[in-house]
Design a protein around this nucleic acid. Structure first.
Lengths: 118, 118
DNA sequence: TAAACACTGAACCATATGGTTCAGTGTTTG
DNA sequence: CAAACACTGAACCATATGGTTCAGTGTTTA
């Protein structure tokens, strides 16, 4: 519950901050795939795809196993629990503060005019 | 619903991939704050904090207004809806694939032994 | 066993990040 | 009006990202 520092969150959010990697997760959700087939799907070199997979692996979102010459990728055990929790928790803050948006200025200018009136 | 490309998601997830910025959101959820006070809270130079705020602003997670010499920051209208939706959608994929983790190898080795048997 | 295949690693490149310092600009405030 | 204040912008730095090519290594397969 208490989340001091949280490098896992850093890694996971960073991994999700790329459309290709989100696409990979999407793809792996429909079954595992080799690096070659992923590279083909996303029109990228093998090496480029391997880097993306490494990022996802470091974040715990993807696991891979090499059998023979093929490395097969699948979704990781870690899931997106922690990320979902952080977002849900903070989504409420946004909703609560929703109307504060336009009020920031008027509040402050209120204070200013009070000050100048004193 | 259909999310082709989604640069907003890129920006938001990238913004969340930093503990300091998550801390800023946390802080702004309890009321708006000036850049100076945020810089003080997070023990950082003004310029450094301003950059973080810019990242959050580009992602639409924070809004700022300058009144006089003070720029006040608050949570943005955008919220975390799209991010929550993406994560919730894909969280299910992880759960569904949960047991596939250890099965990847055995499945493939099964195929291999079938092949060698034929 | 030679060729094709799947991956791996090193090196390179352009750009972004996360931070700093320093030198402004514009706003209060004494 | 001068000093202090809050921010802004430019420049710099080290490291990371997202991609490439090229040259391996190890595995199948014909």
């Amino acid at each position: 519950m208490v989340q001091c520092l949280d490098p896992p969150l850093d890694l996971a959010f960073a991994a999700l901050a790329d459309a290709t990697r989100r696409g990979i997760i999407d793809r792996l959700g429909r079954g595992h795939a080799s690096i070659t087939s992923l590279a083909d799907t996303f029109q990228m070199t093998l090496t480029g795809m391997k880097k993306h997979i490494q990022v996802l692996e470091r974040a715990g979102l993807v696991v891979t196993q090499k059998v023979g010459r093929v490395r097969t990728c699948g979704l990781g055990k870690r899931g997106l629990e922690a990320e979902a929790e952080w977002i849900e928790t903070h989504r409420k803050l946004f909703e609560a503060r929703f109307e504060a948006l336009d009020d920031i200025i008027s509040e402050i200018e209120q204070e200013r005019s009070n000050d100048s009136a004193s």
